[in-house]
Design a protein around this nucleic acid. Structure first.
Lengths: 332, 332
DNA sequence: CTGAAAGCGCTAACAG
DNA sequence: CTGTTAGCGCTTTCAG
C-alpha cells in the first residue's frame, strides 16, 4: 500500500475560498440564497480541490444513508444476479448504494444478515425471503426500523410485496404446450417453502385440472438443491408419462434435458420443456423459458420502499413466455 | 408503512442505567476499566432496550466504516455470484458489510461506480477490473484513497492482485486431454481485454506448442458476449479439426456442446470438452471444468486489503480440474 | 446574503 | 473506576 491521500473536507474548501463552511454547504447543496460571485468561487475551489463530501458525516446529520440493503436467498441462483443488477443500476441512478447480503437459503443466517444490515442504518430494505413461513419473523422485526419491501419471493403479508403473476405465467405455458399438442403435464423442481415455487405449483394444478387430471400426480420435488445430478426417480415419472414438462428453473431444466437425452428421449419431439426465469442459460441453450420483467420488479420495489406511489398490479407483473427449441413445433 | 420504532441511543442506555455515556461505551466495547456491578447493569439495560449502536456515528468517529466495496465486471456471469458469496460470507465473519457495484463490462461505468463507492468512505475496495488495460486508471485513482486489491481479473500492476494459476490450470487440462488420446486442440471463447482469458490463452499456446503446432490456429474469439447462439464459424473450425477443446466458461461450453450435438458430433467421443470456473452449470450438466479456489481467493483478497500478511502464491492459487462426462474416458 | 454555532451518536483523551 | 468534554464532517437554524 502506498500513502493514502486525505480527502478534502468542507473546511478545506471554506478556507481556500475564504468563506464559511455554511456557505460552502449551501452552494454545494444548491440552496438558493448565495451570491453569484461567492458561488462561483466556491464551486471553482471545490472542483480544484476535488472535494466530494463525506457521505458518513452527511448521513449522521441527515439521518439518511442513501443506501439500501438487499437480502437474497442465494446469489448463486442465476435469477438473482440479474435482479441484483437491475436493482443496483436503478439505485445508482438515484445516487444510492447497495449493501448486499446472501442468506444462503438459511433462515437463521438471513435474520443475522438483516440485523447486521439494519445496524448499518440503511434507508430501506429489500428482501427476497428464504422461506415462505419462517422468514416472516425477521421481516416484521426489520419493518419496525425501516421500510421493507419483499421482492420476487414473499413471506410476510404485513410487508409490501413485488412479484410477478405466476398464475398468468403458468396459464400461458400450459396453453402453449396444449397448442403444441401436449396433453400430459408434469411439474419439476418444486421447492417447498419457496413462495414462487408454491405459487407456480398451485397454478399448475389449477390450470391442468381440466385437461389432464393426472398432472397433479406428476409433481417432482427438488431434493438435492438446484445443482447435483437429476434423480432417476424424476426420469421414471416423466418418460412415457408426460409430454409437456414445466420446470421451476433454467438450471434444472438444462440438467433434466441432458438426462432425458441420455435416456434417448428427445426434446422437444417426445417431451416439450419450458422453464422459468429466462436466465442466460436459457438463451445459451435454446430453452423455452418464462421471462420475468426484472426492470419493472426492480423499479417498483425500489419505488415502493421509498414511499413513492408506484402502481403494482394486484396479481403481479406480467411475464413473457419466450418460446425456443425445447418446446418448439408440434408433437410427433 | 407502519410507524417506525426509533432505535435506542447510547444516551438512552446511559440514562436508564444511571451512568455516563462514556461508561456505556466502555462497557459495550469491552474496554477493561469498568466496575463489575456497573458493568452488569449496563449490559442488562442495553439488552433490555435492544441497544445496537449506530454504525454511522461510530464510523464518523472511528474513521472506519467496517464496510468494503466490491466491483465486479458482470454479476450475471455465473462465476462472480459464487465469488461474491464467498466474499460476503468472509466479510460477515469480520463484521463488515459489502457494498456491491456492477460495472456491466463498461469501463466508464466502472469508474463511476468506483467513485460512488469511494464517496461512501469504505475501508477498502476489491475490484475485478472490466478491462485489462483501460481499468488501470480508475484503480490507480482509487488507490490514492483506500487500499485496493484486484481479484480474479487484473488491470494494474500497481495494486495487489489475487488470482489463480492459469498456466498451471491449462497445463493440467492439456495433460488430461492428452492422456485421453486427444491430439488436436482448440481454445474457445477468448475474450480480448479480460485478463483471465488472456492468461489462459497464453498458456494454451505455450502448452500446445510441442504436441500440436496447429492449435494456435484454432483460437475462437467470443464475439457476441457470453450469451447468444454459438457462431457457425466456431463449429466449422472445430468439427473434424479438433478433438480436445478448452472453453473459457461453463456457459459457453454448454452452448457449444448443444450446438455440436445438433451437428451430430458426440461429446466426449468425438470431441472432449473442458471449461472453466466449475459453476453450478458444470455440475448440473456433467461438464468437465476447472474449479477455482473461491474461498482462498476471497480470504486472501480480503486479508490483503486489510493489510494482513497473507501468503499469496506468486503464480496464483492452484486450481482443480474436475473431470466429468464431457471429457471422460478415452477417445474412440 | 453570509457567518457562528448547535448537534447528529459515538469514542477517546483527560480529570477526578 | 467513572464522568466531562472535545470533536469526527456535515447541515441547518438563528443572528447579523
Amino acid at each position: 500500500m502506498t500513502t493514502l491521500k486525505p480527502r478534502p473536507t468542507i473546511r478545506d474548501v471554506a478556507r481556500e475560498a475564504d468563506v464559511s463552511i455554511a456557505t460552502v454547504s449551501r452552494v454545494l447543496s444548491g440552496i438558493p440564497g448565495a451570491g453569484p460571485e461567492v458561488r462561483d468561487r466556491v464551486l471553482r475551489v471545490a472542483a480544484e480541490l476535488g472535494y466530494r463530501g463525506d457521505a458518513i458525516a452527511r448521513s449522521l446529520r441527515n439521518r439518511r444513508t442513501d443506501s439500501l440493503g438487499l437480502v437474497v436467498p442465494d446469489i448463486t441462483n442465476p435469477f438473482f444476479p440479474s435482479l441484483v443488477q437491475e436493482i443496483e443500476q436503478d439505485l445508482q441512478r438515484r445516487g444510492s448504494g447497495l449493501l448486499l447480503a446472501d442468506a444462503q437459503g438459511d433462515v437463521e443466517l438471513e435474520a443475522a444478515r438483516v440485523r447486521s444490515l439494519l445496524d448499518r442504518r440503511l434507508d430501506a430494505l429489500l428482501i427476497s425471503p428464504s422461506d415462505r413461513d419462517r422468514s416472516a419473523e425477521i421481516i416484521v422485526e426489520a419493518r419496525e426500523q425501516v421500510p421493507v419491501v419483499q421482492v420476487d419471493r414473499r413471506a410476510s403479508d404485513d410487508a409490501p410485496y413485488v412479484g410477478v403473476d405466476h398464475d398468468g405465467a403458468i396459464a400461458e405455458v400450459i396453453a402453449h404446450l396444449h397448442a403444441g399438442g401436449r396433453r400430459h403435464f408434469a411439474f419439476v423442481g418444486y421447492a417447498a417453502g419457496v413462495s414462487t415455487s408454491e405459487a407456480r405449483l398451485d397454478a399448475f394444478i389449477r390450470h391442468t385440472a381440466d385437461i389432464d387430471p393426472m398432472a397433479a400426480e406428476r409433481i417432482l420435488r427438488e431434493e438435492t438443491g438446484s445443482d447435483g445430478p437429476v434423480p432417476d426417480a424424476w426420469l421414471d415419472s416423466i418418460v412415457g408419462e408426460a409430454d409437456g414438462v414445466i420446470v421451476t428453473s433454467d438450471l434444472i431444466a438444462i440438467a433434466l434435458r441432458d438426462a432425458l437425452n441420455a435416456r434417448g428421449t428427445r426434446i422437444p419431439e417426445d417431451i416439450a420443456l419450458v422453464s422459468f426465469d429466462d436466465t442466460l442459460l436459457a438463451r445459451a441453450t435454446n430453452l423455452s423459458s418464462v421471462r420475468q420483467p426484472l426492470r419493472q420488479l426492480a423499479q417498483a420495489s425500489i419505488g415502493l420502499v421509498h414511499g413513492e406511489d408506484v402502481p403494482v398490479p394486484p396479481k403481479g407483473f406480467a411475464t413473457t413466455l419466450v418460446v425456443r427449441a425445447s418446446s418448439g413445433g408440434t408433437q410427433r
